[in-house]
């Protein structure tokens, strides 16, 4: 009986259980993506949705796609997202107040209408027959079946899409590449600048972060011999992003100078 249900595409009870647990979770996660403030939280929720989808694929006899989904999306694509988020600022959080007047009601109304109509259409759609199931198509194995199709019927789209992929890679390089706007300073020029600059103080080079400091971290300024922190010891891009900790908190004068006994 169970076997027959699988044959005609009826989901079996374990699958139904899985679906009714994971499906609502995926929808909730997707909704959460819209509602959370921080982009990085959105990314994590997104990854969850994708994993759920991978499970769904596998449950529907699309084993190959399920694995690829995990590898490509949760692996490569999400990593790319996170990498860019790091670059742009991982902590920056969006304000969720709408600035374009009337946009949100329109979007929500349209979306509710769209979803409702879609569901309504799907609900009344009928094939005139039951679902067939993939047992026959996957007889030689799912990967073999897809491979056979890709290299026979779909070989031309396959070639085209590989060309698209190469083009996209090149395009990304071109877009991300920034031509140098000023001439690169030579070592000679750098040393001239150091010694003949405004102050001789920099002649020995900038202090490295963390030197003599209480923390050995990259965003903690170095302490000068008189105990004051040196703000210019922290990388300029960290400063620009606002990720540098306030130098004053590291001023030695403001904390107890009593040496704690090493245990």
């Amino acid at each position: 009986m169970m076997q027959l249900a699988i044959e005609v595409g009826q989901t079996a009870t374990p699958e139904a259980v899985m679906f009714w647990i994971l499906g609502p979770l995926a929808v909730l996660a997707a909704l959460g993506m819209l509602l959370v403030k921080k982009a990085v939280h959105s990314a994590i929720l997104m990854a969850f949705v994708m994993v759920v989808l991978a499970v769904f694929y596998i449950a529907q006899d699309a084993v190959f796609l399920g694995i690829v989904q995990v590898v490509v999306y949760t692996g490569a694509v999400m990593m790319l997202f996170l990498f860019i988020l790091m670059l742009v600022g991982v902590d920056s959080s969006d304000s969720l107040t709408e600035t374009i007047r009337g946009l949100r009601p329109i979007a929500i109304t349209a979306a509710v209408g769209f979803g409702g109509l879609m569901v309504s259409l799907l609900g009344r759609a009928t094939l005139g027959r039951d679902a067939i199931g993939l047992s026959a198509a996957n007889a030689d194995g799912n990967v073999e079946g897809i491979g056979y199709l890709l290299f026979s019927r779909f070989v031309w789209p396959f070639e085209v899409i590989s060309a698209l992929l190469v083009t996209a890679a090149l395009g990304a390089m071109v877009l991300a590449h920034q031509p140098r706007s000023s001439k690169k300073t030579t070592q000679r020029q750098q040393s001239i600048n150091r010694f003949r600059g405004e102050s001789i103080a920099t002649a020995a080079g900038l202090p490295a972060p963390g030197v003599y400091a209480r923390h050995n971290a990259v965003d903690v300024p170095a302490l000068l011999p008189d105990g004051t922190p040196a703000p210019n010891s922290v990388n300029a891009s960290l400063k620009a992003r606002g990720d540098m900790l306030d130098s004053n908190t590291f001023d030695l004068k403001k904390i107890s100078t009593q040496v704690e006994e090493e245990k």
Partner: peptide, 27 residues
């Protein structure tokens, strides 16, 4: 107005119209 998001909203409205048309035809 130059805002990509409002263009996207318009696309959404367009898609809704399309679906609605199909819905009307089907029913």
């Amino acid at each position: 107005n130059g805002f990509v998001r409002s263009y996207a909203a318009l696309i959404l409205v367009g898609a809704l119209t399309l679906i609605a048309a199909i819905w009307v035809v089907v029913s």
